[in-house]
């Protein structure tokens, strides 16, 4: 549990800056949810048997969780590691780079979970999610957060500068968002794109959360959970590997 002191450090900073942190992590996705949801929803009577805004809420929950996890692990992580040298200071204490990586990943996933669960709460308040099944979306959001925090931290410990993150965001995150069934059902896309989406974590997050919001158990739940867990585990392992390499020189 040594990593917990790293998690706690980030939590204490977040608590100090809570207004800005909550605003940036929640206001954006909620504005988009209601803007697109009601705007587009007026044109689309229903998608997959749900109102468009409820359909989009599931995608937006996962996307916002992905963005929070990625931004925290990449940009904030890089600021702590490179700019402030906070990691160096921690390493003089009886902690290792593995403890820091674990603390950073779980922290970014926690922050992402807060984004996801707040969107879920807002969706519930607006009557978009009424079944008790939605409660399972809470652990699902944490799992999505873990998967993207791990990947984000890999980018963080590989980065030589800030611009490095643009590649990951533009070449990976944005296309992933478009093909993973966030805004429209993924199976409308050409088969090769669907195959790519199915190999990526966001698709599986959406496949878990959308049925839960609609009020039904997800099909192939364990497959989706397994893919997200695999991404989280692989990201964790790779982040530790590259972090050790970075700090060994």
């Amino acid at each position: 549990m040594r990593w917990f002191s790293v998690w706690r450090r980030n939590f204490l900073v977040w608590r100090k800056l809570i207004a800005a942190a909550v605003l940036s992590n929640l206001a954006d996705p909620l504005i988009m949810l209601f803007g697109l949801g009601y705007g587009l929803g007026a044109l689309l009577p229903s998608v997959e048997g749900m109102s468009y805004i409820a359909f989009f809420a599931a995608g937006q929950l996962c996307t916002a969780t992905m963005f929070t996890a990625s931004f925290e692990s990449m940009f904030s992580g890089f600021a702590r590691m490179q700019g402030q040298k906070t990691w160096d200071a921690i390493l003089y204490a009886p902690l290792t780079i593995d403890d820091i990586v674990a603390g950073e990943i779980v922290w970014a996933a926690s922050k992402a979970w807060l984004t996801g669960s707040t969107i879920l709460g807002v969706a519930a308040v607006f009557g978009l999610a009424t079944s008790p099944w939605v409660l399972l979306a809470l652990p699902a959001a944490f799992l999505v957060g873990l998967a993207f925090s791990g990947l984000g931290l890999v980018m963080c410990v590989l980065a030589r500068g800030w611009d490095f993150f643009s590649y990951y965001m533009t070449l990976v995150m944005t296309p992933m968002m478009m093909i993973s069934g966030v805004f429209f059902p993924a199976d409308q896309l050409p088969a090769p794109l669907v195959a790519i989406a199915k190999a990526l974590p966001l698709y599986h997050g959406v496949q878990i959360v959308r049925p839960l919001i609609a009020g039904a158990p997800p099909a192939d739940l364990w497959l989706h959970v397994a893919v997200l867990l695999a991404y989280a585990a692989a990201g964790y392992a790779a982040a530790i590997h590259f972090a050790r390499r970075r700090f060994a020189s």
Binding site: V13, L17, Q84, K85, L95
Partner: peptide, 21 residues
């Protein structure tokens, strides 16, 4: 110096002590 810029003087000492448990 790699003091934690997000914390005050006293908080720096408290947070750093936590790394030692």
């Amino acid at each position: 110096d790699n003091l934690d810029p997000d914390f005050s003087v006293e908080e720096n000492l408290i947070v750093y002590g936590r790394y030692f448990g």
